[in-house]
Nucleic acid binder design. Structure first.
Length: 894
RNA sequence: GGGAGAUUAGCUCAGCUGGUUCAGAGCAUCUGCCUUACAAGCAGAGGGUCACUGGUUCGAACCCAGUAUCUCCCA
């Protein structure tokens, strides 16, 4: 036999992947004779390299797609990448920096040239890596979110939504990096734990006539806070008092009841501001009185909106104070802080200074302390779209797997805020808004159209393109990826094209829960808005891949294996199955190398099953000797097939894999092959081989979505295949009910239970697996012994099977079903141990009987429970009694 | 602070509509085997008060209430 003893994946994987591609199996096009099945890949960042999360996510997609393809659907998996504005721009900036080039010295166009160069060079790496995993994407359809066609889609949508009044400009608090002179996303902000100072400042209460008597009824320490008609306010940022527009207290705070509605005077500055009340203020933090500075704090900003307060912005872009501050103008915020503290102290307005633990937000890029800053941004209204997008999930038009995410989704959609879609970056789709010299603007697909609109709007026919200035900002990357399921089929440019009509809505989406809102929800919105149809039917949410200790995988921890190394070491099939063994939907996957080892071992097991059947010589003269085994495995296979399909329908991928795993390893290898395997170097009969090969082929089909490479390899080794006879496109087996299957399976289980009893005795008595034994059976079911005679002899290594009326002398016994079995073992019997074992079993059986009796004696049970349930209980009772009798006899025979 | 989910064997998880003594799977562990397909293997075995406390029910891992612990999301 020339087949290697262990399977070596490296030799076959590249070969088959190339063949599949050459054959065009992954390419899909509209085909009226077939049902469509489509999946769009969550486009990985162009900056990305394959990590464990991608491996899990794409393995799941590939399993779904390959199965669909085998089911005869026109399976289309659209791959592509995402331009990832922020990440990519940061990468390019860093790369330029290494070359000594500063972004600030470049024009927009120059910078973009560098960025495109970078994208061309590195942007496709991850897709190449996916091929190593076996991903059966339709590579002819590879898209990129910033390619011209998709950019066109983005701009069209922007213009359209703007014209529908869904897009507007508004004020928003951003993370401002005063050193870098740019806004940062939340992801670029690093929180640092620090000790900060809390300054207690005195705001003089402005006494008005109406107030005079009511005050000062609080407790002693409360009085302290307002003594001498001062309200003490605690703040960590005293330099911002010039931007104060109110002081807020909690309406339930007894200390300040009398001050609500009154006015206080800002220290040093002398401007009067109102005291307002809001539940937001926490009573125990600081002094319970909060200064409200809408321009420089997000929460204050919202408070300001709620209470209709003005906004005073006292900071310049570089973090220095502007004229609106009136004091310390031109000083840096930190210098101003030092100075104002000194001045407050001298004026006797600084009550005290406390230290407290706080979190300082700093810039990832410059290290500067982030300044929350109001800025003019573009927004997309969410309320209307969110409502519809919630509906389709609520009514299960789109199903989330697992369904627990529905709650999360609902919570978010009900509290959704308008979407800030502008970013102060260059890499991305530039916002198609054009400003006129008078500061007004028009929104248009291109400059030409913009000029036309601008002339109309201004009434000035002399306007020229050069008078218009396009918005400097680009759109949020999600503003292109939310169109992905439509734009990859060119559904915006050509809304009625054959591809989109055929493949949209897509079927399944596989992604991570973290982007359920950012991406999934918005795709649903876009789908409903532009196709009036949901973008997909099922959303499968994967977990996060963690290490064995439950920590996230990260570069800095160094706890993530390199996926390509893993594939090289364990084979793509081994890695794929390893990843799936322990990852129920929505649950995090605790990665352990043991998992891929298990996967690799499984491929090896399959390989050896194949090897075994290949080694058999056929003797055409031999009669069909394995009817029972063949019949049984046929029934088992069909039953499992139904179970497997059910798991797939419910998106239980791990369970589906485990089902096939056990079918192959336990039922096929450990049981079936052992039953039909001829003795060493003995030939096999043709009929058995034919069935066995057919079974193996069916198993290969079931395994193929999980382990595409090894199964394709064996498929071609098993037989000469015609041109397009690839497992990749073989028909997925349909479950076909086997007559009397339940009975067949139950009978074999009984026979196997007897085998287990024999093997157990071998183990206990230290007999080798091949030492010939005889079996004595005391049973009514002699038919079982006849039918399974060959199997019992082979698996039990028995030389004879005798039916007896009483236990033979000097034998070890066991009970199986309602019958007793004995293995005569001269001189090896430990009477005491035997007795103890039987007594134990008897005790258990009696307990069982008693519990059933008790149940049946309960009138309410008999009345209330379903009839068949009661009937089953009666049957149980009968079985138990038979067993007890058998055991009692055995005991007395000892 | 608000919300959601979880808690079952050493680990990761199943357990559908409450009904077999229902407590299960894989891995890990232990014992014995190099039995010519596979030691990346074979055959067996052990292991759990279903987080806790009450309640509903003829019957609860499952339903209800409370408690504890953990995770995630939002602020």
């Amino acid at each position: 036999m020339s087949i290697a003893k262990t399977y070596s994946p490296a030799d076959v994987e590249a070969k088959w992947y190339q063949r599949w591609q050459e054959k065009g199996f992954f390419h899909a096009k509209p085909n009226p004779r077939k049902p469509a099945y489509s999946v769009v890949i969550p486009p990985p960042n162009v900056t990305g390299v394959l990590h464990m999360g991608h491996m899990l996510n794409n393995t799941i997609q590939d399993v779904l797609v390959r199965r669909a393809r085998m089911q005869g659907k026109e399976a289309c998996w659209v791959p592509g990448t995402d331009h990832a504005s922020i990440a990519t721009e940061a990468k390019v900036v860093a790369l330029l920096q290494e070359k000594g080039i500063n972004k600030k010295d470049l024009t927009r166009e120059e910078f973009l040239t560098h960025a495109w160069d970078w994208k061309e060079k590195y942007g496709g790496i991850i897709l190449e890596q996916l091929k190593k995993l076996g991903a059966s994407c339709d590579w002819d359809r590879t898209r990129f979110t910033m390619e011209p066609e998709l950019t066109d889609a983005v701009l069209r949508v922007f213009v359209d939504l703007y014209r529908k009044g869904q897009i507007y400009r508004g004020i928003r608090m951003v993370n401002w990096d005063p050193k870098g002179g740019t806004a940062l996303s939340d992801e670029e902000v690093i929180p640092k734990d620090t000790m900060a100072k809390m300054y207690h400042l005195r705001y003089e209460v402005v006494i008005s006539e109406q107030l005079s008597v009511v005050s000062a009824q609080g407790e002693s320490d409360n009085q302290q806070l307002t003594t001498n008609n001062y309200l003490t306010v605690a703040t960590s940022r005293p330099e911002t008092i010039m931007a104060d527009v109110a002081v807020a207290v909690n309406p339930n705070d007894p200390r300040y009841q009398h001050l609500i509605g009154q006015r206080v005077r800002i220290p040093l500055l002398g401007r009067d501001i109102p005291v307002i009340s809001d539940e937001y203020v926490s009573i125990d933090f600081g002094t319970g009185a909060l200064k409200v500075t809408p321009a420089h704090d997000l929460n204050d900003y919202e408070l300001g909106l709620k209470h209709n307060l003005p906004v005073i912005d006292i900071l310049n872009n570089d973090g220095t104070l502007n004229e609106k501050a009136q004091l310390y103008v031109g000083q840096d915020r930190f210098a101003a802080r030092r100075n104002i503290v000194k001045d407050l102290e001298e004026a006797g307005l600084l009550d005290k200074v406390e230290e407290y633990a706080s979190v300082l937000q700093t810039s990832e890029r410059t290290g500067a302390v982030i300044e929350p800053r109001l800025s003019l941004q573009w927004f997309c209204k969410m309320d209307h779209m969110a409502k519809k997008a919630l509906e389709v999930v609520e009514n299960d038009e789109i199903k989330l797997h697992p369904p627990k995410f529905k709650n999360m989704y609902r919570a978010w959609m009900e509290n959704v805020r308008d979407w800030c879609i502008s970013r102060q970056l260059w890499w991305g789709q530039r916002i198609p808004a054009y400003y006129l010299p008078d500061g007004s603007f028009v929104v248009a697909l291109n400059e030409e159209e913009a000029l036309k609109l601008a002339r109309e709007q201004s009434g000035n026919q002399n306007l020229e393109a050069s008078d218009l200035r396009q918005d400097e900002d680009v759109l949020d990357t999600w503003f292109s990826s939310w169109l992905w399921p439509i734009s990859v089929f060119d559904g915006f440019k050509d809304p009625d094209n054959a591809d989109i009509n055929y493949f949209y809505p897509t079927d399944d989406l596989v992604t991570a829960p973290e982007i359920l809102f950012f991406w999934v929800a918005r795709m649903i919105m876009a789908g409903l808005e532009y196709r009036k149809e949901v973008p997909f039917r099922n959303v499968y949410l994967t977990g996060i891949v963690r290490d064995a200790q439950g920590r996230k995988m990260s570069k800095s921890l160094g706890n993530s294996p390199d996926p390509l190394d893993l594939i090289a070491q364990y084979g793509a099939d081994g890695v794929r199955t390893g990843m799936l063994f322990s990852s129920p939907a929505g649950n995090d996957l605790l990665y352990d190398v043991k998992l891929v080892e298990q996967g690799r071992n499984f491929t090896n097991k399959l390989w050896n099953a194949f090897r075994l059947t290949q080694g058999w010589e056929v003797d055409a003269a031999l009669p069909f000797a394995n009817g029972k085994a063949v019949e049984w495995f046929g029934a088992k296979l069909q039953a499992t097939l139904a179970e497997l399909d059910e798991h797939f329908e419910k998106f239980r991928m791990s369970d589906a894999l485990m089902t096939v795993y056990k079918l192959v390893w336990d039922d096929f290898c450990s049981v079936y092959l052992e039953m039909v395997k001829p003795a060493y170097q003995a030939p096999i009969d043709a009929e058995t081989l034919r069935h066995t090969t057919a079974y193996l082929e069916t198993l290969l089909k079931l395994l193929h979505p999980f382990m595409p490479f090894i199964t394709e390899e064996i498929w071609h080794e098993l037989a000469e295949r015609t041109d397009n006879d690839y497992l990749c496109v073989a028909a997925w087996p349909k479950p076909q009910p086997v007559a009397g299957a339940t009975e067949l399976l139950a009978r074999m289980d009984k026979a196997l239970d007897i085998v287990a009893g024999i093997r157990n005795i071998r183990n206990q008595k230290g007999l080798g697996p091949n030492k010939p034994l005889t079996l004595a059976a005391k049973t009514d079911d002699t038919q079982l012994l006849q039918d399974y005679d060959g199997i019992l002899r082979k698996l039990g290594a028995l030389t004879e099977i005798n039916v007896v009326d009483a236990a033979p002398a000097a034998a070890v016994g066991f009970v199986s079903g309602g019958a007793e079995f004995f293995v005569p073992l001269e001189g090896q019997i430990d009477l005491g141990a035997e007795k103890e074992r039987l007594s134990k079993e008897l005790e258990y059986a009696q307990g069982f009987r008693d519990s059933v009796l008790k149940k049946l004696a309960n009138e309410k049970f008999v009345q209330n429970a379903k009839a068949d349930l009661v009937e089953r209980e009666r049957q149980k009772l009968a079985d138990a009694e038979a067993k007890i009798t058998a055991l009692e006899q055995s005991l007395s025979a000892l």
